[in-house]
Structure formats: structure tokens, C-alpha cells
Design a protein around this nucleic acid. Structure first.
Length: 489
RNA sequence: CGCGGGGUAGUGGAGUAGUACCAUGCGAGGCCCAUAACCUUGUGACGCCGGUGCAAAUCCGGCCCCCGCAACCA
């Protein structure tokens, strides 16, 4: 059986999840479900980046021990997945022992390859943020935006560096040849543009002091912790057993061999460099296979503005699910937000989509067909879409399957849904044309066709709207229609 | 002249030279099986200026505006 390994990005858990995290979860889940339905063996992994200094700072601010703080937040992310019907097979925590061991193994491999060396790092350090900044990240006075008026200090310390420069041409070639595929093409171009400039080696550790004794210890050097991106990316591997000792944990080792490399990493546009440049470079250095595809999605704004706590416009996905139901939220995210671009959320847009597509479109069609079946042709059983008599309808259904498959090649979920909704529009029109509630010779045949069509729609929406798909199936079996999506007044 | 992406009806998208498409919104009509649903029809757009072409949203040049870009960010 073909295997398919898909991951979400690894959020750092210094705050509650927002609707952007929901978008990524849902997209990854749709991919996973689609491949599962094709009969492949699928693993969907998510996890939490728990070693970031931001987490430590946020915990301090909240007055909670770090471990407790991140455990609680990580749990919220897992709950969000559950609330959205996102079936995670693995949720790998960055603070887990297995992850630490795994990341140290990756480090060892890179070190053996001769790609890790010690160097003095000097940078501008903001004491308020406890972070280094580069000059172009600062305002015109050379101060950071969080703490205007505060001068930055020049701080230097010895860190470990990774020889990123060594992999430049190899990366260009891999991406060019599509061995590391980047979707959409605009993002690929962006990466190329970046790779045209000479790459600098990157710092991959920091002092214990600056790391506040948090994070993965550097093997063989007690005074240093890994810089968070070095270990965070490795969650994709540690979560499936990379670093397991084959003699002690045969199953873990076998698991890794079975699933790695990842077939798709689903990520946000903000972290493309880490995934398209650093991550493959680490893997090349360690002599490990590279992920096959990066799918890069955009960001969700709220009412046209970037979500932020200070603006108070952060959209809580839990609230949305409570209010409108799982599939309504999934539908909005997949249909309204162009899958590779930015999109906007507002309650107005949400309710418009809901009423037009879900209540008036899908829900209403299922209701009207089932009522017609019940009244006119109650004995008809929908078995096989090939039973369909109307040629045009048959053609549209076949064409839609093809369109959905094509759209999935490039993760264009919105296009896939548009294609499915074309069937709905066709059926509504077909009903109006044929008037099957009026007695006629072809009356029963028409209704039979319609029943087969909504059965097929139920099949097609399975990866996107799993709850609704099973509701439709059930209603067809029981000949009972109940509003799938009650209209919002 | 830092690099990259982008500006198509009120809104969200599609469209890499040949009557500008889809959805939603708003107006009118129709239907009555259905969730005030559904169907038909009208309304309404290619940022600006110039160039190449028989023909440009699409190619070229200039300008304006928006968004992102190395160590936090889905």
C-alpha cells in the first residue's frame, strides 16, 4: 500500500490558537483525508514548538512554570484539531524526551559531516525583548518597535554555526528539478530569488544563559542549547521515530523508515525559508532524504486587518465552531480563502457564504431532492452513479471528479469546491426544467438521477466536509431530510 | 533605482492576445418540490500613461498604490 505522510507546521505555543492555525489544520486534514479515501495509508502529524524563548517569556509573564504553560497551550492546539474534525495521528511535543534525543542525533550527523563549527556571534540585543535584531528590523532611531526609546546593546557570544553556504548550489538544483517541489509557483520564485544571493552560515545555538536553560542541550557542550529552528523542524522526524535506537526500540526505527520522507509539509508563507532552505540543508548534511513537497498557504486577516491582540481582532476558532458548526467553519476556510493566497475573515463574509452555499445551495438541494424522492419515488435505491440516465448529468459528474483531482495536485481546495458546487447548480436548474413534482413519464427517472447526484456529491465532499458527508449518507438511507445547514437570519 | 508578489464589477475569485467568466450583492420576472430557498434576466470591472500587434486584462516601457522579505510569526 502506498504511504502518504503529511504535516502541519509546528506552531510555537505561547498563546491560544487563532483562525490561521485553524486554516492550516483544515488544509492538512483535507489532504490527509483525500489520500486516505484513495486507499493510501496516511499519517498526519502536528506538534508544538516548545523550545522557543518566546514560550519562556510568555510563561514568565503569566507567572506560570514554563513546562506547565506550554503543556496547557499545546493542549489547546490539540483540542482545536479535535473541534475541527482534524484527525491527527501524531502530535509531537518539542519538550518531549524523544524529541530531544532525536534532535541531538540530527545534530551529531551534521557535525560528523563537518558542517557545524564555533564562531563569535555579535549582534544588537534588545534587553526588553531578550532577542537579537538585525539593523533593518529596527526603526529609524535604531530601536526595536516593541521598546522604542530603549537603546540596543552590542552583545557577542560564542555560538555554533551551520555551514549553510555549502548547500547553496545543491538547493537550487533540487528545487529547479522539482525534487523539492514548492507550491504555489510564486513561492518557488521567491525562494529562488533568495538563493541567488550568497547564503550566510546560520547560528544554530545560543548560550544557556540567554536560552534560560530551556531547549535541547547541544550534545557535548553543556553551556549551549540548540537554536529553536534547528530542533523545531526536526519534529517532523522525531514524531515518527527518528533517533530511536534500533536495538532498544525496533518499532520506532521501523516507523521512521516507513514514513520518512514527508510527502507534504503544509506551512504558512512566513516560514518558507526555514522549510525551503534551512531544513533541506540540514537533511542534506545529515545524509537524510528530503521532503517531497512544500505547500505554502497565506495568512488570514480579520476585517482586512492583520490579527493582533492589541487591535483586539483575533478570531477565536473555537467560538466559530460553537456558533456555526465544524463543517461550516471548514467550508469557509477552504472555499473563501484562496488556498495559496491571503484571505479575509469577517462575520459578514462568513454568514453570506454560509447562507448562499451551505444553506441555500447544498442543504437546500439535499432537502428538496429527498422530499421529492419521498413523495414520488420512495422505493428507488441509489446504488451506483452509473445508473444515471441523463447524459449531461453523467458528464458533469465525471468532469467534476477530474476537476477535483486536478485541483488537489496543486492544493487548490477552493477550486475543487467550486467544481463540486457546479453540480449543485446544475441539479437545481435541472429540477426547475423538469418539474418532477408534476406527473410525467420521466418523473421517476429524473428523481432517481437526482438522488444519485446528491449521493455522488456526498462522496465528493468527504475530504472537505466529513460530518456533512455522513449526514447526507444517513439521510439518503433513512429517507429523512433534516436541515443540514439551517439558514442564518 | 534592494528583492519578490500583487492591483479584474460593491465584495471574493478565474482568465498569459481574438466577443471579459464564476460566485455573492442589488433590481425585475418566474416557480411552488425545497431551508423567505430554487430558476431566468438586468445591473456593474480589467490602477494610471504610453508603445508593439489586425487584435492587449494578457506582451514591452514609465508612473502610482498595496503586501511580504535572515533569525519570534499559520
Amino acid at each position: 500500500m502506498k504511504k502518504f505522510y503529511v504535516t502541519t507546521a509546528i506552531p510555537y505555543v505561547n498563546a491560544r490558537p487563532h483562525i490561521g492555525h485553524a486554516l492550516e489544520f483544515v488544509q492538512a486534514d483535507v489532504i490527509a483525508r483525500f489520500h486516505r479515501l484513495k486507499g493510501e495509508e496516511v499519517l498526519l502529524l502536528s506538534g508544538s514548538d516548545e523550545n522557543a524563548l518566546k514560550n519562556v517569556q510568555a510563561a514568565e509573564k503569566a507567572g506560570v512554570p514554563v513546562q506547565k504553560f506550554i503543556d496547557e497551550n499545546a493542549k489547546l492546539f490539540q483540542q482545536l484539531a479535535g473541534a475541527l474534525f482534524v484527525q491527527l495521528d501524531v502530535f509531537q511535543k518539542g519538550s518531549s524526551k524523544a524529541h530531544h534525543i532525536s534532535s541531538q542525533k540530527l545534530w551529531d550527523l551534521c557535525e560528523k559531516a563537518g558542517d557545524i563549527y564555533k564562531k563569535e556571534y555579535e549582534g544588537l540585543y534588545c534587553v526588553g525583548c531578550e532577542t537579537f535584531y538585525t539593523p533593518d528590523e529596527l526603526n529609524e532611531n535604531g530601536e526595536c518597535f516593541e521598546h522604542p526609546g530603549k537603546k540596543l546593546e552590542k552583545v557577542s557570544e560564542e555560538n555554533y554555526f551551520f555551514k549553510l553556504s555549502r548547500y547553496q548550489s545543491q538547493l537550487v538544483e533540487l528545487i529547479e528539478k522539482g525534487e523539492l517541489r514548492i507550491v504555489p509557483a510564486e513561492r518557488k520564485n521567491e525562494v529562488f530569488a533568495f538563493l541567488k544571493q550568497p547564503l550566510e552560515d546560520i547560528s544554530i545555538s545560543r548560550s544557556n544563559e540567554r536560552a534560560k536553560n530551556w531547549g535541547v542541550p547541544v550534545p557535548g557542550d553543556e553551556s549551549q542549547r540548540m537554536y529553536v529552528w534547528f530542533d523545531a523542524l526536526n519534529i517532523y522526524q522525531s514524531g515518527i521515530g527518528f533517533g530511536s535506537d534500533p536495538s532498544a526500540d525496533e518499532a520506532g526505527d521501523a516507523k521512521y523508515k516507513k514514513w520518512w520522507p514527508a510527502d507534504v509539509h503544509v506551512i504558512g508563507k512566513g516560514i518558507i525559508r526555514f522549510h525551503a532552505v534551512y531544513w533541506p540543508a540540514f537533511l542534506l548534511s545529515a545524509g537524510l532524504p528530503l521532503p517531497k513537497t512544500l505547500f505554502v498557504h497565506g495568512y488570514v486577516t480579520a476585517d482586512g486587518k492583520k490579527m493582533s491582540k492589541s487591535l483586539g481582532n483575533v478570531v477565536d476558532p473555537f467560538e466559530l465552531v460553537d456558533k456555526y458548526g465544524v463543517d461550516a467553519v471548514r467550508y469557509f476556510l477552504l472555499r473563501e480563502i484562496p488556498s495559496a493566497g491571503d484571505g479575509d475573515f469577517s462575520y459578514e463574509k462568513f454568514e453570506t457564504r454560509y447562507n448562499a452555499d451551505l444553506a441555500g445551495g447544498l442543504g437546500n438541494l439535499v432537502a428538496r431532492v429527498l422530499t421529492l424522492v419521498d413523495k414520488i419515488n420512495p422505493k428507488f435505491e441509489a446504488r451506483n452513479p452509473k445508473q444515471i440516465q441523463n447524459k449531461k448529468l453523467q458528464e458533469i459528474l465525471n468532469g467534476t471528479r477530474q476537476k477535483v483531482n486536478d485541483a488537489f495536485e496543486e492544493f487548490r481546495f477552493n477550486d475543487a469546491l467550486i467544481a463540486i458546487w457546479e453540480i449543485i447548480h446544475f441539479c437545481d436548474k435541472y429540477i426547475d426544467d423538469k418539474k418532477p413534482w408534476v406527473e410525467s413519464l420521466e418523473q421517476k427517472e429524473v428523481i432517481g438521477d437526482l438522488l444519485l447526484a446528491i449521493t455522488e456529491i456526498g462522496e465528493l465532499i468527504k475530504p472537505f466536509l466529513p460530518e456533512t458527508a455522513s449526514k447526507i449518507q444517513k439521510q439518503i438511507q433513512e429517507h429523512k431530510s433534516e436541515a443540514l445547514f439551517p439558514r442564518i437570519a
